[in-house]
Design a protein around this nucleic acid. Sequence first.
DNA 1: CTGAATTAGTTAGCTAACTAACATCTTCAT
DNA 2: ATGAAGATGTTAGTTAGCTAACTAATTCAG
Lengths: 190, 190
Amino acid sequence: MPAQQPQPPSTPRDRAVEPAFRAMLRSYGQLQRVMHPYFAAHGLTGSQWGVLRTLHRAEAQGLPALRLVDLSDRLIIRPPSVTGAVDRLQRMGIVTRSGSDEDHRVKRVSLTPRGRRLVERVLAGHPRQMRVVLSVLTGADLANLRRLHEKLAAHLETLANPGKTQSRKTDNQDPVRRRRPAGTRGEEPR
Amino acid sequence: MPAQQPQPPSTPRDRAVEPAFRAMLRSYGQLQRVMHPYFAAHGLTGSQWGVLRTLHRAEAQGLPALRLVDLSDRLIIRPPSVTGAVDRLQRMGIVTRSGSDEDHRVKRVSLTPRGRRLVERVLAGHPRQMRVVLSVLTGADLANLRRLHEKLAAHLETLANPGKTQSRKTDNQDPVRRRRPAGTRGEEPR
DNA sequence: CTGAATTAGTTAGCTAACTAACATCTTCAT
DNA sequence: ATGAAGATGTTAGTTAGCTAACTAATTCAG
């Protein structure tokens, strides 16, 4: 447990880490600001759109109505967040929640007819909005952005879920020091 | 019944837009999950760390204590969010809020000695954490990531603030007499 | 078959962000 | 000098995410 003091060997790559990190966070924040009014014009939020798009896509693929836990997996948010999001969409009359006969624990979420019309209305203008948002990037930029973020997301997933059988290819030589023992709940510093 | 609306002329670049978009959102979500326990181990959240790092940096630059609105500008969050964040940090004994004699509207936020020690403790391990998080990217990747996101953030900023001038010099340089832009296109879009 | 473990979903309580509306103080133009 | 406009910060109310702890249903080991 060395009391760390010197900046570790600072290679050029190391020095590139923080600016990249900050640029990423910054553009994400701005993205939220741009998308918010766009979705609001349809009476939605970005998160709600995520739920609707996911349901619509599953429907188009002929899958049975998704369970809450399926939404949780696809949206990469935890179950309690799904409960809340679906609550609100249900209150708006855009989705329904129905019990399953097979398994009495599960509830399946479906678009209502009205919800389906809404999704299609949004979808009609959606590619255009995304093009506007990313219009500053060239085709090569987009390919790079995608590649970098897919790489990064895969890496972060292994960091976020230690002990999940992801793939034994994992480069283990740089283990994050945070083996969460049980609850990593921050103890109120008071 | 899928596929109804006339998708606008779909060039290869257009088709690259959505995957890039989604990869970006996905990696951001994963990033949150990875960083949360890291900050929690210090009794902090990511947003709180943003405030503390900003205060610490301004201090190191010899600037006078930042106003809430300075924090709002630098963190790119709206004033009410700053109020709440500072409230909580203050309750934890990590920062103080003090009125100004020059301008009785402003309140200045400073790190307490305890807050300063906390920042330095986090800072000691922070470069390492960022390197771990981005360890999957090469030096060239990092340079690209930065370039793409700086480009994107600048574009999004113009989309988010239509009719704003770019130069952000409205800072804290002259705390005593700040002649400020008289001519105002204060187009605060509601 | 029975009891332990697992899975699906919810509730409670927290932080973080937002908009809208407001009080207060300052600056500026008339 | 005064009144309008702008700047600073807060309050109120909403959504979204989280962890922890819970209930209820299912599955599985012995």
